[in-house]
Simulated scan of single mutants.
Amino acid sequence: MAKRGIILMNLGSPDSTSLPDLRKYLTQFLMDEKVIDKPWLLRSILVKGLIVPFRSPKSAEAYRKIWWPEGSPLIVITNRLKNALAEKIMDPMSISMRYGNPYPKAAYEALLADNPDLEEVILVPLYPHYAMSSFETAVDYMTKAHKALGYRFALKTTPPFYNHPAYINALAESIRPYLQEDFDQLLFSYHGIPERHVLKTDPTGNHCMQSDNCCFTKSICHKTCYRHQVTMTSELVTKKLGLPKSKWQQSYQSRLGRDPWLQPNTQVRLPQLPAEGVKKLLVVSPSFVSDCLETLEEIEIRGKEDFLNSGGESYRYIPCMNIQPLWVEALAGIINEVK
């Protein structure tokens, strides 16, 4: 068997909650052409001249609300996941972030320090679903670093695991205990993306977003269609849980800018739900396997305020799987399937 190493890759985090660190992090994040897919000059004006100066103070305040004594929750949890996986997989393992520390070179060098004769590295993007602004940009980032640094070991990647039976089972079982409570609806809140990103990743050019039923109509584009993949995750998980369609719905969070994004929007739906008779709400965010700003602040804190202030009676955020044993076991299996 080849001498291999494993890199777990997550979104990333600022180094601290200070304003300079937030500016640095947001600039790197939003200048990614796969996140804001505008021409470089326009993107630079938008990001450096408008978005970062405006968002940095607000983001710093939001991070302060969820920051742990050990540091950024996302970084801490990813390291804990690495340690939990090390009990099931004997290969050397490191972590990298798409934005911020640790950078790809540090992750590669950490593996080489443990195994100078490394023959292959398995890159594990911790994104269940394919999107150009998450999975695709992470793989491109690591691939470019691998080539630029001249490493001789092979680089392989685990595919999106949105419908993998072990992932679906782990996600369903992480939700199941909360269904014992009295609730009206379970809301699957996925990270939003612009509609044009869905269209850009459609290799046929004529399937995605063309009909209400396109996510359920077989197509080669489903391999790279975020909308299809999140929809299938919801369908498979609720089937596993035996949850009827009347008890759950799906939305998309974290919208940025005025361009059309996938609908419905979580921030719009939460205040609307109480008036529709949904008084007791459960919310889960399956775009993320590790809790982070988008789950702990946006959903658990602000989402709860929006719902309760609009007449809701109870609101429960269901945490990400983080290092739950079934998830760790599922991920180990997904890694070991890479040939």
Score class of each variant (00 low, 15 high):
1 M>W: 05
7 I>C: 12
12 G>S: 07
28 Q>W: 12
32 D>S: 14
37 D>M: 08
37 D>P: 13
39 P>L: 04
41 L>Q: 02
43 R>H: 08
45 I>Q: 05
47 V>F: 13
50 L>C: 13
59 S>K: 09
63 Y>T: 02
65 K>V: 02
70 E>D: 14
73 P>W: 05
87 E>L: 15
97 M>P: 10
98 R>Y: 03
100 G>N: 10
104 P>K: 08
111 L>N: 10
111 L>F: 07
118 L>P: 13
119 E>T: 10
128 P>Q: 01
129 H>Q: 10
137 T>Q: 00
139 V>H: 11
141 Y>R: 09
141 Y>K: 11
144 K>N: 08
147 K>R: 10
153 F>N: 06
156 K>W: 06
169 N>A: 10
172 A>P: 03
178 Y>D: 08
185 Q>S: 12
187 L>H: 05
188 F>A: 00
188 F>Y: 01
196 R>C: 03
198 V>M: 01
201 T>H: 10
206 N>E: 13
210 Q>Y: 05
214 C>Q: 04
214 C>G: 07
234 S>N: 04
238 T>H: 01
240 K>T: 00
246 S>M: 04
252 Y>P: 00
268 V>N: 14
268 V>M: 12
278 V>W: 00
291 D>Q: 06
295 T>G: 02
296 L>K: 00
297 E>A: 02
300 E>Y: 01
301 I>W: 05
302 R>K: 14
305 E>R: 15
308 L>R: 15
310 S>T: 11
311 G>Q: 06
312 G>R: 11
316 R>H: 07
323 I>T: 15
328 V>Q: 04
329 E>L: 05
331 L>Q: 12
333 G>P: 13
333 G>R: 13
335 I>A: 15
